[in-house]
């Protein structure tokens, strides 16, 4: 995917998260959203693009979230579930029991 598009999407998420008063919550919320909703190849392309190109117009929070983005390899043979980052509890606890 085009790096500009991925960065644009991340910036949009960031703008929502930035309205939170708790900065840690905003950062974790941004990373959790990307980890929860972006396919691994998108996350890989995103991290590669942003970390290698300082000119990409990524927001500050987006850059700071990079280390929290989970990376996995396509050829991983169905690894066990990664641990959920904080702030990404299941949407509906009632559906879980």
């Amino acid at each position: 995917m085009r790096p500009e598009k991925l960065v644009g999407m991340a910036n949009q998420i960031s703008l929502f998260m930035e309205s939170k008063t708790d900065r840690d919550e905003a950062l974790e919320g941004l990373a959790a959203h990307i980890n929860d909703f972006w396919d691994p190849r998108m996350r890989r392309q995103f991290v590669d693009a942003v970390s290698s190109d300082d000119d990409l117009p990524a927001r500050d929070l987006v850059r700071r979230a990079l280390p929290l983005i989970r990376l996995s390899r396509e050829d991983d043979d169905l690894p066990g579930a990664p641990k959920s980052p904080a702030g990404s509890e299941p949407i509906n606890p009632a559906h879980r029991d």
Partner: peptide, 28 residues
């Protein structure tokens, strides 16, 4: 509405279908 990252949710289907379910979200 159970996220694929949750082991317990995947397990329900894995035991029934006899496969390993990918814990990573797919493409929209």
């Amino acid at each position: 509405y159970r996220h694929v990252k949750h082991d317990d949710a995947r397990e329900i289907f894995e035991s029934r279908w006899g496969v390993k379910i990918d814990p990573e979200p797919g493409l929209r």
